[in-house]
Each structure stands twice: as C-alpha cells, then as structure tokens.
Computed example of a mutant assay.
Amino acid sequence: MFAVVKIAGQQFKVQEGQSLYVPHLSGNTGDSIELSEVLFIDREGKIEVGNSVGKVTAEIVADLIKGDKVIAFKMKRRKGFRKKKGHRTQYTKIKITSIA
C-alpha cells in the first residue's frame, strides 16, 4: 500500500515504515503529525484519487536538519563586481506510521 501526499507544495510517494526528509515542519522530535492532503491511495489494487482521499499519520524523527550549502555567486568581468551569498535549506525527517 502506498499514498501520494502533498507537503509544503511538494508531492511525496510514501509507504508505511518509510523515513523521508520533507521541508521544515513545526513540531518537536517525537510528535505525531497528520498529513491530511492525500492525493492518491493504492490499497492492493484498489485506487482512490482526489483531494483528501484519506489521511496519513507520521512521527517526527529529527526536528531540524540542514541540507547542503547552496552558493549563489555573481560576477561581472573586468568591473570588479563580485557577490557571494549562500544558504542551507532546513528539513524535517519524518517516519510514516500509518495510511488510512
């Protein structure tokens, strides 16, 4: 059984027991969250499609994880202009506990 859920504008294909990194969600480690925006559920061949078909519950494993550093570098040749900025995207690690 698997489901497609929408979290922070992104779609994720999830199964029970699966761990995945999603954009930062509010909550602490060990909290249980309910993902209500379920777009697709496959229950052993029985398919349900639509917005809010079911619900998926998950547990927050790690609250705040930073991704790889992304650097935006701008330069204009022969002008002496150089600008360097960077950021690290924040993620939350969750584990899917049940699909209903």
Rank of each mutant, 00 (worst) to 15 (best):
R43Q: 09
R77G: 13
E16N: 13
K95L: 11
R43C: 02
I71K: 13
A100M: 15
K55W: 06
V49P: 08
E34G: 04
G9A: 03
I71D: 13
T97A: 07
K66I: 00
K85D: 06
S36Y: 00
S36M: 00
E34Y: 05
R78P: 06
Q18S: 08
A58K: 14
V56C: 03
E37N: 07
A72T: 13
F2I: 03
K83I: 03
I60F: 00
G54Y: 08
V22Q: 07
F2L: 08
K66S: 11
T97G: 05
L39Y: 05
E48A: 12
G45Q: 05
G9V: 00
T92F: 13
M75F: 12
S19P: 02
V14K: 05
N51W: 02
V38I: 12
G80Y: 12
Q10F: 03
G17H: 12
K74D: 10
A3E: 07
K85H: 09
F2W: 10
T92V: 10
R78W: 00
R88Q: 05
L35T: 02
I33F: 12
F2H: 14
L20A: 07
V14D: 10
H87T: 07
D68N: 05
K69G: 04
S26K: 13
D42C: 07
K93Q: 15
K95W: 04
S19D: 14
I47A: 04
G45Y: 04
S98K: 14
K84E: 08
E44D: 15
F81E: 10
E44H: 11
A62D: 13
T92G: 14
V4D: 04
K69N: 01
V4Y: 10
F12V: 01
A3S: 09
I71S: 09
K13H: 00
K83R: 11
K76G: 03
I65M: 14
Q90E: 06
L20Y: 12
K95T: 11
G45A: 05
K6W: 01
E59D: 06
K69L: 03
Q11H: 13
L39P: 01
A62T: 08
G9Y: 01
M1S: 05
I96G: 09
I7Q: 11
Q18M: 14
T92Y: 12
I71L: 15
G30M: 12
D31Q: 09
F73W: 11
T57V: 08
T92D: 12
A100V: 09
L35E: 01
Y21M: 09
I60W: 04
Y21L: 14
T57S: 08
H24M: 06
G45V: 00
A62I: 04
K66L: 00
D63F: 01
L35C: 02
I96Y: 15
I41T: 09
T89N: 09
